[in-house]
Nucleic acid binder design. Structure first.
Length: 219
DNA sequence: ACCCAGGGTCATA
DNA sequence: TATGACCATGGG
């Protein structure tokens, strides 16, 4: 894949999505901590279910790391029930809270380099590459590109990447072909997800798709 | 009734 | 290192 072509296409797809879908307003959250919570709760789960869980946490006064660490596991699990995998995610939320508090929360962690931040997050139980990058990008505003199942499917169909390319090299493709701008990366990822959610559900012959009908339907 | 969603961990081979 | 089972709710 000639690098110059790839760079043009990676940028072109963004402009096309951007033109088609306009402003999206990601990541929806009222605080940095809410982004951390959302990043865990949205694992393999529709965002609408996550919104309900976050709302329930707010109503229960549990939208702070101290409150989550201080409450009974059953209370926490019940509050996030709607996001699915609630027992697993209750444990993961605690792990993220411990990491956050132990390291001095936003102010102290903000001083870290992006590499250190990423390595540290990846050691937290329940935080894999995508969740880590959600947090790094949307909460800490660092230019890392979030790769998800949509991104993998869409860009391999467009012929710009390989279908079973590993996470890190796929992330590098985007980061090497775009200006390292957190605003841009965040908006791009948002547009990929929104495109997948809103346009091509299942039909391989979707004519509304802006990307040569190659985007989002399952194989 | 089925399929899928803004993944990750753990056990097995 | 590479698959597969498992986690679980809610909307289409």
């Amino acid at each position: 894949m000639p690098k110059q072509i790839l760079q043009v296409d990676i940028q072109k797809v963004y402009l096309e999505l951007r033109m088609q879908q306009g402003e999206l307003g990601w990541w929806p959250a009222e605080s940095v901590f809410e982004i951390l919570v959302g990043a865990v709760l949205t694992q393999n789960t529709a965002w609408t279910n996550v919104e309900k869980a976050i709302q329930s946490l707010k109503e229960g006064g549990l939208l702070s790391p101290q409150a989550i660490l201080g409450c009974e596991n059953e209370i926490l699990a019940n509050r996030i029930r709607s996001s699915g995998y609630f027992n697993v995610k209750a444990k993961r939320l605690r792990a993220v809270c411990e990491w956050y508090v132990l390291n001095g929360e936003f102010e102290a962690i903000s001083q870290w380099s992006t590499d250190l931040l990423r390595e540290s997050l990846l050691q937290v139980h329940g935080v894999g590459p995508e969740t880590a990058d959600d947090i790094i990008l949307y909460a800490f505003k660092r230019p890392v590109f979030v790769v998800d199942a949509y991104t993998r499917r869409m860009f391999s169909r467009l012929g710009l990447t390989q279908a079973k390319q590993d996470y890190e090299s796929l992330r590098a493709v985007f980061e090497n072909n775009l200006e390292p701008d957190a605003q841009l990366f965040g908006d791009y990822h948002a547009h990929i997800v929104e495109h997948a959610k809103n346009i091509c559900k299942v039909k391989p012959s979707c004519t509304e798709c802006v990307l040569n009908r190659l985007c989002c339907y399952k194989a």
